[in-house]
Design a binder for these strands. Structure first.
Lengths: 195, 195, 195, 195
DNA sequence: TCCTAAGCGAGACGGTACGTCTTGTCTTCCA
DNA sequence: TGGAAGACAAGACGTACCGTCTCGCTTAGGA
């Protein structure tokens, strides 16, 4: 019998190479236009090896999605400002982008950003939905209530929209200012929905 | 010089054949899995003719988009309900989808719908922006005001979001109900922004 | 009723346009790579018009071949130098090329030259064959005699070969000198064949 | 490093399949009318594989040209018959064609034959030039001497001309007879040039 | 230390869709 | 009503990718 761990380490190395190759490619061009061979060349991995571990390109993407978005801040409830509670992620993410903006430069074109933000949107939608379950007023059901998953999708979608506009305009606003824009767009709705 | 109208009629016939072929194929299988040759065979059209008129399959889909989205209703100002003014498009579009839902079924896969809705989002963003210019309270500038283009993008984006959710869930709500969801999401914000 | 002559003139005009277009194209690129549409564009003629008058591209070429090669000099028998009789065309053609070399420049690339010389070869073959019939010694049959059509093809082929070599080498020899090369290649054979 | 021979064997198998498919198709229809897909179907080879190894149909034809032309015989000097020395290739090639004539029939159309014979002409020109260097009388330079490269081109060109005429006329002469024709065309010139 | 089986690279391969190109026909307009 | 314009069907072309596969090399563990 072979020791599992050892082979595992070797395999993990290969998987990492592939994930990193994909990430670096996404930073350069539209995900859709990336082709398996490009990933293989960059990762120095053989074609058959790729297909041993992943069904296709999408499978690879999904397997490594966390690497793309970085650690999401955890929500911390601040007593007294209950509406803000659900928007905990907003300012940190804006600030994160503000700090790393010049590190990324413009190498990640509009296309690369689209795919990254699409992922961000998906992840945010789920995170918000999860957090909302802990809020009894948001989670409760009623005939006229807007479905919670719509609200979480709404918040995530609007956030990404604002983020995109901010970036498109060269981040001329400070993180605090753009965060304010986002809150003024969503807070009225949140208040109404929770009442 | 050739009489424009006549040749036009011949060409229009070809375009129609192609659009109808695509629609009927969408009624049978996922949009993504339809290949050009199938369209050609069904439309009895030559390959070169197809590429004379359309860049690719997506172009054909978009070119026939009017059939899908219906004519965009014109906004009519109703005195006294000024907040609704800007959301004139909402209910008609929901109703249109509701009426044509079963003709399309779920056959138009995620990619096809993404293309369609992306187009819808763009068109709506511009339409709303245009209409907003006529509303003196929305158009006026101030330091703390949210940029009008953000508001129009926000409305269009949220609308498509709601539309998507509705379709994904099998349109279990009536058009009036889903329209209500959309309004409860956006009206509070609209009111706040205009004040 | 339309006056016949008028239509005729109109048609002739069209045929000329097409022939001239082909000629000017042959001067620019390989005949094989010329495509019907290019001829139509240059001649400002519609597709159906072309196919009304010619079966295909080759048909057009053949119909206008004389325009390409120019008038071939007529053989004049010089008494006493009977072997030269059959090579009457040689020096005049060399001289013709020498004179017009710089007018053509290098615009007619190797490909264009290949097709023109191929035509020259064909025409020469026929002209020589015709002239040979008038020479009783060349025309007479015998068991061991080389078929006259082989001789004419041989002369034309060798002539074009020498012409090509001359042109490829920048026409460093005078017309009289290169003509001498040609004669020294073919005269021994001619003498032997006629004996 | 990969063992060369192994992959080679696999590739050679594919190349063979393709060449054989082309040959068997040539035995059935005109070369010009054969399309790539037919070759693929018969060889059971994928389109991309074909284009990995060959630029196009002509490339495949030429790549298998050895099968067509047979091994070129090596010149062996026979003392005393010095003029024949340089024409060593003539009879063997005629005989080779004679033997394989009915296998090919007329199926290889004008274009296919043109390609083949053009190749043959080039190869012969070089071979003859090479052999001529060993003949001191042919190689020596003088003012009035015909350039050696003209002589070799002349011999190759004339040979292909005769070969073509022979084939066009259904090979009614025996190989020995057509070889005789070729020699009577070129030997007088050779003798004159060498003197 | 050797043996052996899995991981791996390299890349050939069959298959399929693409978008381009060209041909020869067909339809319609115009003079 | 015949000639011109050009839309069209047909289908071959060469390219791009895909996912499968075959082949030896490498390598690390257990014998």
């Amino acid at each position: 019998m072979r020791k599992i761990g050892t082979e595992d380490r070797r395999i993990q190395k290969t998987l990492s190479l592939l994930r990193e190759a994909l990430v670096s490619l996404i930073a350069e061009k539209r995900y859709d236009s990336i082709v398996v061979k490009e990933i293989l060349d960059r990762a120095n991995v053989g074609r058959s090896t790729f297909y041993t571990h992943f069904r296709d390109k999408d499978d690879l993407l999904i397997s490594g999605i966390q690497d793309l978005l970085g650690p999401m801040p955890s929500p911390t409830r601040t007593p007294g400002k209950s509406q803000d509670w659900i928007l905990w992620f907003s300012l940190p993410v804006f600030e994160h982008h503000y700090r790393h903006a010049h590190a990324w430069g413009d190498r990640i074109g509009p296309r690369g950003r689209a795919i990254l933000h699409e992922h961000l949107r998906r992840v945010l939608t789920e995170l918000i939905a999860e957090v909302m379950k802990k809020d009894f007023r948001m989670g409760r059901q009623s005939a006229r209530r807007i479905p919670p998953e719509v609200v979480s999708a709404y918040l995530a979608s609007t956030f990404v929209l604002v983020l995109n506009w901010w970036l498109d305009n060269g981040m001329r606003l400070q993180p605090g200012e753009i965060d304010d824009v986002f809150r003024r767009l969503t807070l009225p709705t949140l208040v109404a929905v929770r009442s």
